[in-house]
Nucleic acid binder design. Structure first.
Lengths: 97, 97
DNA sequence: ATAATTTGGTTTATAATATAAACTTGTTTA
DNA sequence: TAAACAAGTTTATATTATAAACCAAATTAT
């Protein structure tokens, strides 16, 4: 009845990060930080986890002279996000009407 | 942009419990256990937390000679559930179309 | 020039959480 | 009356989320 929720996505900050990335081609660390309101440390950790899971890719480069970490959702990440949304619907159905 | 998610509801099992209770007048422990597939220990703990939060009420009685714990969602619990659903929509919008 | 501040992060320590294993109390069945 | 089962509760553990502390380089102020 209640499908298991992907623990990687069932996390406030990671879910917010995925939500941001689902809507853009790519986004850099500072942008995601601003959109989510997360602390840098927390964001850094969660981005690592999403990367390890293959849900996003990270490219480190420079914007001018400043370091810049750019993130992008992967097809696998997009699938996982969609699956998570679908699974959640089972839990929320009472409130989605 | 991303509203804070009620940590009491952002839990797989507690959310499932609330989802069950949102759809019925009341439900006893064993029924919830079966619907959610949870272990008794886990369920017991999570029911306590929901009770302490005022999201559900618990009545202990007997069904024949057997102890029977009956749970019911409160108006406050219903509101919190709805608020949680609404908040989540902000996170999921990319996947709800 | 160089000191102070800011940017863009990473590492690490801590506190909270979820979860199941172990336990309890009483009931039913063999 | 012993064994198995029902209905939970308590407690121990492992995981997790989170922010504080830290680091390196760039920018700004003195």
């Amino acid at each position: 009845m209640f499908p298991k929720l992907d623990p990687l996505l069932h996390s406030e900050l990671r879910l917010a990060v995925m939500s941001v990335l689902a809507g853009v081609d790519s986004a850099d660390f500072s942008f995601i930080k601003k959109q989510t309101g997360a602390t840098a440390g927390n964001l850094s950790v969660q981005i690592d986890k999403l990367t390890t899971a293959g849900y996003i890719t990270v490219e480190k480069g420079f914007k001018g002279k400043m370091p810049c970490t750019t993130c992008k959702i992967t097809p696998q990440g997009r699938d996982a996000f969609q699956a998570y949304v679908d699974a959640l619907k089972e839990y929320l159905s009472a409130g989605l009407d």
